[in-house]
Design a binder for these strands. Structure first.
Lengths: 234, 234
DNA sequence: CGCCGACTTGTTGTCGACAATAAAAATACA
DNA sequence: TGTATTTTTATTGTCGACAACAAGTCGGCG
């Protein structure tokens, strides 16, 4: 069985999506540092693919703003835009509210199971003090709620924003303590109840409060960091 | 000066974007019918480009949902999803409100000039009964307001939704009369005033009313069309 | 006469190579 | 020695060709 043909690992047509998903994850999880160059040749070697499918994956990533291509020059992993964080927070808060509202209005009973499962995963991650797992499962939890709301446009924007947030949280994840996350577990529980009860306004209120919590938490990390590095001239 | 070299019309690096923008426009303006196949070879001939840049443009269009690629099979212009129109209208209304609010809050004085200019263009299109021009300039007007609001995420989603709406409006543009559009001119004027006065709540109210107008107008076209074609079993 | 399978054909996915561009390096000159 | 200019080099954008896949076509068999 010495079948050492140079057989491609990926099936035809699935090469680009695997590259896309792999890189996407690595960017969000900061395995690829913001600002670091993305070399097509290098990726070509790594995935054992030609540069063409690599490039198509990069085009998709660029469309999402995860990488930035300087024409005819290099292409880099997009920097985290601290000046534009206000926009992210504003949109993120709105999406928290809208998706939770819609979930309360539009969810099917079967949706609840999935949401509950993810909430449980989040809870166990919190108890295990698995910070990285917390960040990931928290994201999945809210995406599941958004999907129960059944509006593709909100879900798309929301996931984009949450993933943007994941990058930032990764930066400061060492600052996490186990007090706030435990609070999140309770807030999630309340949100699930509001959704089940189809209490739209209640879901809205809880989502808004939850968003404010998270935003102010991230904000405090950043300002603390700013003070440390003294980036702001007085 | 018989410099008849087979000189490419496009500068290096701008081939894909021209293809992307051209196709995007043609899809939105229904010059390419929904469901019609998109042949790469054909486009390659038409733009005098290799299939590679064509493909990259198609990947971008697919990411926006304007075309649908069946793996290893054909790729078609995305159909207009009438069942998903509710989602579009919901998100569209919210974006109308949010972007106009933010414009009132965040605009710079210089933004007003551009908005005014587009409003004028819209007005002249209405007076000239240039329906297609109306649809286009109306879209540009609201995008300009959104840009004055200075939130990239809202602007992106809003343009996507407005363009989606443009496709639908094109379908029914023969149904347009000149009564409603004239009303829009006045509503636009009020919105500009609210923005200038930084009247956030007022801008919100006006935008919401404006959105409701448009949505119900489109809805009426569609239901009228449904009755005509008797698509619904009794 | 109708169903199943091999073959043909058209289109997509992938490949390796070439050309153009811009940054970096090397050289010339004051 | 410092600056301007040319040369080199690395990387991108583009190209034409091949391979794989799916649909349509044709022929064989019941």
């Amino acid at each position: 069985m010495d079948d050492t043909e140079k057989q491609p690992v990926h099936k035809r047509g699935y090469g680009v999506s695997t590259v896309y998903e792999t890189l996407r994850n690595e960017i969000i999880e900061l395995k690829l540092a913001p600002g670091s160059p993305v070399d097509e040749q290098q990726l070509s070697d790594r995935f054992s693919l030609s540069r063409t499918p690599i490039r198509e994956a990069l085009v998709r990533l660029a469309a999402e703003g995860l990488i930035t291509t300087l024409t005819n020059r290099t292409t880099i992993v997009s920097n985290i835009d601290f000046l534009g964080l206000g926009e992210v927070f504003d949109a993120l808060t709105l999406m928290y509210r809208v998706t939770t509202r819609l979930a309360a209005a539009n969810h099917q009973p079967s949706d609840i199971d999935g949401i509950r499962a993810l909430q449980l995963q989040f809870q166990t991650a919190v108890e295990a003090r698995d910070v990285l797992g917390m960040i990931a499962t928290n994201r999945d939890f809210h995406v599941a709620i958004a999907e129960a709301g059944r509006n593709r446009y909100y879900t798309d924007l929301f996931t984009r924003l949450l993933d943007q947030g994941r990058r930032i949280l990764r930066l400061y994840y060492s600052s996490f303590n186990d007090v706030l996350p435990r609070q999140y577990v309770g807030e999630h529980e309340d949100m699930i109840q509001a959704v089940i009860n189809r209490d739209i306004d209640g879901a809205d209120r809880l989502a808004a409060a939850h968003a404010d919590q998270i935003v102010s938490q991230i904000r405090s990390y950043i300002t603390a960091d700013n003070r440390q590095t003294a980036q702001l001239p007085l």
